[in-house]
Write a protein that binds this DNA or RNA. Structure first.
Ligand SMILES: [Mn+2]
Ligand SMILES: [Mn+2]
Ligand SMILES: [Zn+2]
Ligand SMILES: [Zn+2]
Lengths: 155, 155
DNA sequence: CATTCTATGGATAATTTTTTTCCTTTAGAT
DNA sequence: ATCTAAAGGAAAAAAATTATCCATAGAATG
């Protein structure tokens, strides 16, 4: 398993710093590289995190006949293949993103935007695991606060 | 704002170690203490975390005529009053719990159960905040792993 | 305790979100 | 170029959530 960085995002896949080759990325995950799937990944990459509605209206520009069912079906297939990750945040609509290296999120209290936060949760997991009667393997972290944009703008 | 411990759960409200007085808890949060609301809180407390379906079938035993709309309306009112918290975990149905002192969750990979994990995220937030261009105020943490029950049982 | 007023509950319908079915089309292998 | 399993699209169904309307019941007032 390799890690490569493209446009501030860290995707799992072939080592590569070129513009993302969605076709190869799909095939690597045993999924047929259809134009619709490439469009879905492209929209996800452009937005970073995307709701089903935004994805739908976005992708309709290129595939006017595409169906919501196609989006849901593909998102689930890609999630099964760990190519796409579901991001659920309280009080927010479900978001989807291309699977990246482990990272946390910041959900802005003011504008609702969600940002990636680079963080290594390994120490947290390692520290917590022995304290618990469960086996802890990984952590999903969502920070709440005020994003940079709202900080500079607002009062 | 006080903290008190009842039956392994840490609720915000009046200082008290007695069985939870839901009536008082509701009034403290400026909500009328109706039997239905008391039933909702009781079911939440019994289950720790509860889905809307479980809540519905549970509470119907006492209020056979209760409507799902009543549940949703009340849950949202209680969330607005910070008396109830929504817990969203990837691949899982939305859960609700009575608001407790800050804590993390463990979602078991095997059985899907969700457990409370005592943890103080203050250091994590304090450490992360200066590293980011955003203002980070709090953290929601969900651990993934295998729960104690599945550990003792399974292979 | 009786009166009053407003918030609440329940019935119902409407929306929104997600999944399923069925048939046609297409990606990728041969 | 041909073949076939997988994928797309239309449509309907199912699941989840929210809104509307009115009778009723908390709880404040006196
Ligand atoms: Mn992300
Ligand atoms: Mn909890
Ligand atoms: Zn913001
Ligand atoms: Zn388990």
């Amino acid at each position: 398993m390799f890690i490569f960085v493209v446009a501030k995002n860290i995707y799992n896949g072939a080592m590569n710093y070129e513009p993302i080759n969605y076709e190869a990325l799909l095939r690597t995950h045993q999924l047929k590289a259809t134009p619709q799937r490439i469009g879905i990944l492209n929209a996800m990459h452009t937005h970073g995190h995307i709701t089903i509605d935004t994805l739908y209206s976005d992708i309709k520009k290129e595939f006017s006949a595409i169906s919501l069912a196609t989006l849901y079906k593909n998102i689930h297939q890609m999630m099964d293949a760990t190519l796409v990750t579901e991001v659920k945040i309280a009080q927010q609509k479900t978001l989807y993103e291309i699977t990246k290296a482990a990272h946390a999120h910041l959900a802005c209290d003011r504008c609702g935007s969600v940002y990636d936060i680079a963080i290594d949760a390994t120490p947290l997991v390692a520290q917590q695991s022995p304290l618990s009667q469960h086996r802890i393997e990984s952590a999903q972290i969502t920070f709440t606060g005020v994003c940079q944009g709202c900080l500079t703008k607002g009062a």
